[in-house]
Amino acid sequence: MDLLNIGGKSFSSRFILGSGKFSLEITKAVIEQGGAQIATLALRRANAGGKENILDYIPKGITLLPNTSGARNALEAVRIARLARELGCGDFVKIEVINDSKYLFPDNAETIKATEILAKEGFVVMPYMFPDLIDARRLRDAGAASIMPLGAPIGSNKGLLTRDFIKILIDEIALPIIVDAGIGKPSQACEAMELGAAAVMANTAIATAKDARLMAAAFKSAIEAGRTAYLAGFGRVLEQSAEASSPLTGFLE
């Protein structure tokens, strides 16, 4: 069976769903329609009175992937990761260190520092990064369990703008490469999977669709199709000629 293995767990789904921007009421349906087995979460101050907690809306059996959103440097990310683990929902953490307020690009250098600290503390570290090969190697060496390069700025729905650089990471880094951020359409998710990405994470593309449940289902199909095509291996491309698909013998007289 074709499974995604991260941090000692195996997943048959290669769709990671970001849980932001949804009403709590549809969160469960979106996860189910997308067939996601991993969902990201953020940490924030609790609502007064303990009302409306997202964990009451996430189906059982989903692996939670807390992010460190809000962190502007490595130490803030480490603090958030430790708080997340204290909630008792596992050791997975998506490192997200952002101090650029216009494009929300991740700070690779601080992300590497946080990865090193948290990997030593036993976290399953999944760093969000700008797709740079040298920094991806540093993340790998720091103990990352996967690498999560961005396709385009967070929430932009602009697609796989960094396609060629992500392909380099896929070819050169022997860790699951999970395309995160910017993917706006199922076709773009499919393309990432065709390239050999191990998984795709999406949030805004689903949350801003007219029908989030239906879009989650579309992403599920696209990611599965892309993965199957990658495993099948693509046929060759003829640049400046053609080749008949039908036999060139036995023509009718």
Partner: peptide
Amino acid sequence: IVPKKNFETEKLFETDKVEIIWFVGGG
């Protein structure tokens, strides 16, 4: 961080600064 196992013994005082954190939706 106050570990969960210390919730019953850890005392709070008027001078304390406390953060109560939980999960919310996020990407």
